[in-house]
Each structure stands twice: as C-alpha cells, then as structure tokens.
Design a protein around this nucleic acid. Structure first.
Lengths: 148, 148
DNA sequence: CTTAATCCTTAAAGTAACTACAAGGTCAAC
DNA sequence: GTTGACCTTGTAGTTACTTTAAGGATTAAG
C-alpha cells in the first residue's frame, strides 16, 4: 500500500493522485521530456519529489490554456533558467507574454459577453440574443492552434 | 479563379484563405457539426456566407484557448440561442463563465511572472530566476484538459 | 475550345497528446 | 506464501486535426 511516511518519495500513483492525472500520462510526460526521469530505488519504481507535483500541475494548467506540449517545454525551460543566458530568457519571455496577452484579450471578450447573456436571462423566460461570435471578432489568420 | 464579385458567396478555398485554415479542416468541421452544411449551387460546390467566416474564426480562437470541439459546439449553441429556452442558455453561460474565469486567473498569473522576468533581464547579463511554476501554483485535480 | 486551377467526393494514413488495455513483476500484509 | 494493490513495459485506441491519394466536375483564362 501507500507509505504514509513523512517526507518520503512519491510513487507514480501518489503523484498521479496529487495532480489529478493518470500514471500513464506521467510516464508519457517523461517520454516527451517535460518531466525529468526520476530516481529509481532498489525496486524499479519511480521516486518522485514534491517539486514534481508542481511541475505536473504546471503542465496541466498550461495545456488547459491551449499551449502545446512543445510550448510547455519552452516555458519549463524558463523555470529551469539559471543555466540559460539572460538574453535568451528575455526573448522567450517576451514572445510568450505576447501570446498570453492575446489569449487574455479573447477570454475577456468571452467573459464580457457571457456575463451580458447571464444578465439578460435574469428571472423571466424572455428570449436572449448571444453575440459571443461577434465578441471574438478577431480573425486569427494562421495563428497556430497546433496541439489538436 | 476567384470571383471578385461584391457580396458573392464564398467557395471553400476563399473561406479557408479568409480564416487561415485549410479546406480539409472546414470539411472536417462540417462533418463534426460545428459548421452547418452550406448551400450548394447548380454546381455541387459549397457556398459560404460572411457569417461563416466569423464562425470558423470563433472555432479557431476558442480551440486556441484550450476548449475542446465539444465545448466549442456548446458555445456555438449559445450563439444560435433564439430557439433554446432562457433557463438552459443561462445555465450554460454560467458554467462556461466559470471556466473562462479560471483560465483568466491562470493567464494573469502567467502574465505577471513573465513581466517580472522581462523586467529583471533589462540590459545586463545577470542571471534570472523564473518562478513561473510557483506562480501557477494551483493544483487542477482532474479539471479536464481533454481535447488532446 | 482547351487547359490549368480549383473544386467535389471518399478513403486511408500520419501526428499530437493523451487514454486504455494487456501481460507480467514487486511489495506489504495476513 | 499467497492475495491484492501497485508497479513495469508495450501496444492499441481516441480526438482533432493534417496529408496524401484517386478520380471526376467546374470554371476562369488564354
């Protein structure tokens, strides 16, 4: 079963439970290089540490925001920055910031329109017109969605 | 070639050019029911209208924000709301608003940390510590990323 | 009128990011 | 000393596309 020992290394299932993903996904992340290969004990079980929980959670959150695994890898290399020259880090941060700000603009437009619709629907059964399509009226033009 | 006639129906390639996706993706969206099957003329070519440009752009933008095609379908049904009862529309809008607001929180945390890093890097070659991992320190717990 | 470009259809195969399953090895407990 | 929960590797399926292919129709241009 689960060793409830304080400060002990996490096994894959425990990391999975802590982050809400499956063990398979964690192994997949390792294969794809977004998670470092963890230590293995006398048994061949993977031994994770607290920081890995943060890392997996970060991958989940950024993926949910529409970033590709490749983009997540790049963002993680920012987190692992100490080894990288400042100019590179700055360039990457700037590029990602631009993308983040565009996503923010679109999400704010969605929030505004959804709030408006919710306001219109208050109480009575009146017919509502949702202009969410027009609210996002910004034609992306080959701005890659990638991922899929 | 392309008819430059004013107010003419768009052919699939023109809609593709206007939205930055391929014709194949547009046919795929039709198969998956996020785009209505358009009118066909005497020839069997699909005839699109201006509104379809908006619709495809909307699909792209929402996909880029990490929504699944199924979620996009739901959001589009809000846009096509007139036929649906207000209570339903309200419930859907509320559910989606909650999701949008969570994405906004995460993106704002990312923006803050990216801005901070960019500030630190100004000019000199000093080493920067990026705490983007900790900035998104919100463990999602089975909050579906789905899509893939 | 011919011809090149663009379109139509169906179908199948490839990619990204998982998700699920299969067959077997490990480990603490009873 | 075996049960059962957990681990291992590996393969196959799913979603949301992208790419390629084969064969036929349409249309703008020369």
């Amino acid at each position: 079963m689960r060793p409830p020992v304080e400060n002990a290394a996490l096994r894959i299932g425990q990391l999975a439970d802590a982050t809400g993903v499956t063990a398979e996904t964690i192994r997949y992340y390792e294969r794809e290089g977004v998670l470092p290969a963890p230590a293995r004990g006398s048994s061949k079980y993977r031994q994770y540490v607290a920081n890995d929980v943060e890392r997996v959670a970060f991958v989940r959150t950024t993926r949910a925001l529409g970033f590709t695994l490749a983009e997540v890898r790049a963002l993680l290399s920012l987190a692992d920055a100490p080894n990288r020259p400042c100019v590179e880090v700055d360039a990457m941060a700037r590029a990602n910031l631009a993308q983040v700000e565009e996503k923010l603009r679109h999400l704010e437009a969605m929030r505004a329109e959804l709030s408006r619709v919710i306001g219109l629907c208050a109480g009575d059964g009146m017919v509502v017109e949702c202009k969410i399509l027009q609210a996002l009226g910004d034609h992306p033009r080959r701005q890659d969605v990638s991922s899929a």
